[in-house]
Simulated scan of single mutants.
Amino acid sequence: MALLFLVILVLAQVQPTRTAALTVAALVLALLMLPLRDQSPHTFVRGTYVLTIALAVCVLLGCAIRAQEARRQRAVHDVRQAERLALARDLHDLVAHHMTGIIVQANAARTIHATAPDKVEPILDAIARAGTETLESMRRLVRVLREDNHAALRPGDLIAELGSLVLDFSRRNPESPPARLDVTAAARNTRFSPEIETSAYRVVQEALTNVHRHAPGGRASIHVDADSDWLHVTITNTTPRHRPVGPAGGHSGLGLIGLRERVQALDGTFRAGPVDGKRWRVAAGLPRHPAHETL
C-alpha cells in the first residue's frame, strides 16, 4: 500500500517528467517482484494479476492529478499574460494621448512663433512636462507585453467611474443590500497617473464581480483613500446567509491572480482573504510614482 501510494505521489508531484517516469518504473518493478517472495506459481500469478490492476488504477490516478495541475498552471500563466497585455494596451493608449497633445502644442508654438514669441516658452514647458510623463509611461510599458490588435481605452475620472460601477452593481443585484462607495477627501483631491487610476478601477470591478458570483446577498463596501504617495482601494463584503451551491460561471479562482499581476506590475501591494471569518476583503495599494526601469 505504501508503494502504491508512492506511485501516485511521484506521478502527481515529481518534476521533471523524465525523473517521474524513471522513478515510477522502478516502483512498478519493485511492486511486481513482491509475489516472488512466495515460491508458489499459483500465488505468483494471482499476486501479479492483482498488483497489475492496482498499479493501473494508481498510475491513472497519478496521471490525472498531474494533468489537472498542469492545466491549472497553464490557466494561471494565461491569466497573468492576459493581464499584462491588458495593462500594456491601457498604457499604449495613454501614451498615444500624451503624444497627440505634444504634437498639437508644437504646431501651436510654430504658428505663433513669429507673431507672439513671448507665448512660446510656456508652450515649450508644457511640451517638456508631457514628454516626461510619456517617457515614464513608456518605461513602465517596457515591463509588459503588448498586442497590436487592441481597442482604444480613454481614461476617465476615477471617482465618477467608480460611482457608475457601484450603481450598476446594485442595480444588477436587487436581492443584495446596495453597495456603498466611501471616498475620502484626500482621494477626491488627489490626481494619480492614468494607469494607476485604471488599475484601481479594475480592482474594484473584479472584486464586485467576485461578490456577485461567490457571495450573492452579501453587503459590499468600497473604500478609497489616498495620501501623498499611495492610492488605497479596499473592497469588503459580508458572507451571505445561505451560500450558493456553485458560483455563477463556475469555479476558476484566477481573477485575483490577474489582479495581483496587474498591481505588482505597477510596484503596488495586493492582499485578498477572509477577515474575522465573516467578511472577505480585497485591498490594493498603488503608488503615485511607480518605480520604473531604465530603457
Rank of each mutant, 00 (worst) to 15 (best):
A2V: 05
L3Y: 09
L9F: 13
V10H: 12
L11D: 00
A12L: 03
T17C: 04
R18L: 15
T19Q: 09
V24A: 08
A25M: 15
L29V: 10
A30I: 05
L32R: 14
L36T: 05
D38M: 00
S40Q: 15
T52W: 09
A54G: 00
V57H: 11
V59T: 04
L60Q: 09
G62A: 13
G62S: 13
I65E: 06
A67R: 14
A70T: 06
R72C: 00
Q73Y: 02
A75R: 09
A82T: 07
R84P: 02
L85S: 04
L87D: 04
D90M: 12
D93W: 15
G101D: 11
V104A: 14
H113C: 05
H113E: 11
D118L: 04
I123W: 01
A130C: 02
G131K: 15
T132W: 05
L135K: 08
E136K: 08
S137M: 13
R139A: 11
L145P: 05
R146M: 03
A151S: 10
A152M: 05
P155M: 02
D157P: 01
L158Y: 03
L165Y: 09
L165D: 10
R172A: 12
R172G: 04
E175Q: 09
P177K: 15
P177A: 14
V183Q: 13
T184L: 08
F192L: 03
F192R: 03
I196G: 01
I196T: 10
E197H: 03
Q205G: 02
V211T: 09
G218W: 03
R219P: 00
A220H: 05
S221M: 10
I222F: 04
I222N: 04
I222P: 02
H223P: 00
H223V: 07
W230A: 09
W230L: 14
I235M: 13
T236H: 07
T238L: 01
T238S: 09
R243C: 02
P244G: 05
P244H: 06
H251S: 11
G253Y: 12
L254R: 06
G255R: 10
E261I: 01
R262W: 03
V282K: 14
G285A: 14
L286H: 02
P287D: 04
R288K: 15
H289G: 03
P290A: 08
T294S: 07
T294L: 11
